[in-house]
Design a protein around this nucleic acid. Structure first.
Length: 284
DNA sequence: AACCAGGGGCCGG
DNA sequence: CCGGCCCATGGT
């Protein structure tokens, strides 16, 4: 993984990328704030920055982005320092996963903001991706700071100040209370996200589970997508289906699924999950 | 230990 | 047009 980076006319350009397909990265259900704005071009926001990214082959253009922002924000966000060829090799244990890897080549696990992930995946429970996006956009539009054409994800303080009824009116449904409680918990310092990030995965997971509206599945999504824990394998319905159909687990319990994922893919079980999720859902 | 509610978009029949 | 299904969880 040796890409080259340079600035040109206010943009940052990255060349010689491998294991990088923008459309798969943004269309595999890990991130809800980026939308296709043109052929091969995606626009969205993360870490209170706007980003328009355009990929042609192994070349990526980050529009109106300084080198400083690339190294501070986007290099980490896109997980560019991680060599996915090593991961693919490590998780290549059987024909099912190999096929999924082939279909999902170029997927990367984004390193997203923990707070944004916390709220986004509370919203994701028992929900579909178009509606999840719609709710998150409504939250950003109303309570996020303007960044010139796009709003940042609202701060914990901003969401904590909103009453439950108003959150409900944005279409959050019964998740209104969960969002409100989580926001107040972070805003008031009872849940310290820096401390959470410093914890070992089991302790971090049980801390997340102590929040109302966060169960095993949502906690695992936050750990994987918002806390960089690639060993965590979220146990969603699609993966359960694959475990049942391809790996012969009858009555797929959470416990059995974790054992399978840990045994087969170890420290990269979460990455394997994304390939499987992507291929089974049949995006693209 | 099984249900069941809670919202709404989407999709197949 | 409608019923089942969603990257589930809490409550009973």
């Amino acid at each position: 993984m040796s890409y080259t980076v340079f600035a040109k006319a206010g943009d940052t350009i990255i060349e010689n990328l491998t294991d990088f397909e923008l459309s798969r990265i943004f269309d595999c259900g890990q991130c809800f704030r980026f939308a296709r704005s043109c052929e091969n071009q995606w626009t969205g926001a993360a870490f209170s920055r706007k980003l328009t990214a355009l990929q042609t082959g192994d070349r990526l253009i980050l529009k109106d982005t300084s080198l400083a922002d690339f190294y501070d924000i986007w290099e980490g966000f896109f997980d560019l320092k991680c060599d996915y060829s090593l991961i693919r090799e490590a998780i290549s244990t059987d024909e099912t996963i190999n096929e999924a890897i082939k279909k999902g080549y170029g997927i990367r696990i984004l390193n997203q903001d923990t707070w944004e992930c916390l709220i986004s995946f509370i919203i994701s429970q028992n929900n579909n991706i178009p509606r999840i996006k719609k709710i998150i956009e409504a939250l950003c539009e109303r309570y996020g700071e303007d960044m010139g054409g796009i709003k940042a994800f609202p701060t914990p303080q901003a969401l904590a100040a909103v009453c439950v009824e108003e959150l409900h009116s944005l279409g959050t449904g019964y998740r209104d209370e969960y969002i409100s409680l989580a926001a107040r918990s972070v805003a008031e310092g009872r849940l310290d996200l820096n401390k959470l990030n410093a914890m070992e995965t089991p302790e971090a997971r049980s801390t997340l589970l102590s929040l109302k509206g966060i169960g095993g599945k949502v906690a695992d999504c936050i750990l994987l997508f918002g806390m960089g824990r690639k060993e965590v394998c979220p146990h969603d319905v699609w993966v359960k289906r694959i475990f049942a159909e391809k790996y012969g687990i009858t009555a797929v319990t959470e416990k059995k699924g974790y054992e399978l994922a840990k045994g087969k893919w170890g420290q990269y079980a979460g990455v394997a999950q994304q390939y499987l999720f992507y291929s089974e859902r049949g995006f693209s």
